[in-house]
Design a protein around this nucleic acid. Structure first.
Lengths: 222, 222
DNA sequence: CCAAAAGTGTTATTGATACACCCATGC
DNA sequence: GCATGGGTGTATCAATAACACTTTTGG
């Protein structure tokens, strides 16, 4: 079979990522300011072309590491977008992933003076390139939905954390306040958490016990 | 930009479908017996190449119609599989969809004597070509999970049905028997169903009220 | 001693489960 | 009149939601 005369298209395949973190009480996503046309100067989600011999997930991990320096993170495939006109130049299919990073695991992301890479608050976004707004909305919905029936938020927390940190993350993602006593009861009842024995020492108040997830992996609740 | 010298691959992109129905008290999937190498004579899920200018979903609908004659069905994107060696010949990315069809909507699928197209029981499958077993397992899990928190089973039922039909579909998908009274209570409490006013007349027993979904569209429960 | 976050139980309400008999029909 | 599936209610148990005060620390 000669693939050069096949009656169908060989589109370009990219892998694009919606990378979330939580910082300053907000859900944020990593965005890249485009340098080239089309959409020069417009923010876009990070991505790259699939390389020869590379699996989709490997490509996602590669892009992740290029942009954040981090590779051990929560990563899951999101959706594949392929409308014929989603890139004005040519046919591009994009397989999208969504990723979660604890803010503390980032290596001082503000220190290097990059102006083309930024963590923007998800509900205050400017115009995005291509169909990236649709992709980002899709990812945000997925995150909010999964937070309600899984332990997915572990991906946004450092190894050790206070229960109040955990509660705050949930509140930011689902967008409403939770009752402290009920929250703690429910979380401890899942059996997914354990005390570290250490206590958080800063602040003019009673120190908090630090907890960790017994396993840092995705689990459905109930 | 000359795409002929680009440093990345232009893989082939296919759309493959896992099409489910329920018949004879079993969950079944539509499979195609391959005529060509590789995997000649082995069952595979139906699919086809993405055509120029065609969206992914349009391609899925096209394949659907080619194989079943039906186009108005439940259809959702499942996952995109792209391991470099998933096709022994060349790089093929497949965007998979899963579809549901009510058995009654099929136009006598047994009448035309096709031997290369068959509805096979999902938990008694032979060897499948490529990574199609993995794809089918993924689809089956998705269906089972979604059945528990949505009205997705409407895709497997004809326009009018008895509550016992609905219950049977649930039991087949989730794999255990349900209490009749509790099931009816819960289903009617969702507010998604309405009586048609008609009754089912066949059988040496009391006729059953026929129901329909108020809207034949995906809704989350609770 | 004051401010600030940590930590802790009980009650009320709601939803889920378990369970058995009568009804309408065809033969 | 008997076999077959259709149709109905109540009581128990489990999960969720509402709600306020004491503890420990730093300054």
């Amino acid at each position: 079979m000669n693939t050069n005369v096949s009656p169908y298209e060989h589109p370009e395949v990219t892998v694009d990522l919606v990378i979330f973190t939580v910082n300053e009480q907000k859900l944020k996503a990593l965005l890249v300011k485009r340098g080239e046309q089309p959409f020069a100067g417009i923010w876009s989600i990070p991505g790259g072309f699939l390389q020869t011999g590379e699996s989709l997930e490997d490509a996602a991990i590669r892009v992740m590491q290029e942009k954040t320096g981090v590779k051990e993170i929560y990563l899951e495939q999101l959706y594949t977008f392929g409308k014929p006109d989603r890139d004005p130049r040519r046919r591009v299919i994009t397989v999208t992933y969504f990723a979660l990073i604890p803010w503390k695991n980032l290596i001082q992301p503000e220190s290097k003076k990059v102006t083309d890479l930024a963590w923007l608050t998800v509900d205050e976004l400017p115009e995005l390139a291509f169909d990236h707004r649709e992709i980002l909305n899709y990812a945000t919905n997925r995150l909010r939905t999964k937070a309600s029936y899984s332990n997915i938020v572990y991906g946004l927390l450092p190894a050790h954390f206070r229960l109040s940190d955990l509660q705050k993350i949930y509140e930011i993602i689902i967008g409403r306040e939770l009752d402290k006593r009920n929250f703690r009861k429910r979380m401890l009842a899942t059996g997914l958490l354990e005390e570290t024995g250490q206590k958080e020492i800063v602040g003019a108040h009673r120190p908090a016990m630090l907890y960790q997830f017994k396993k840092r992996e995705f689990v459905l609740l109930d």
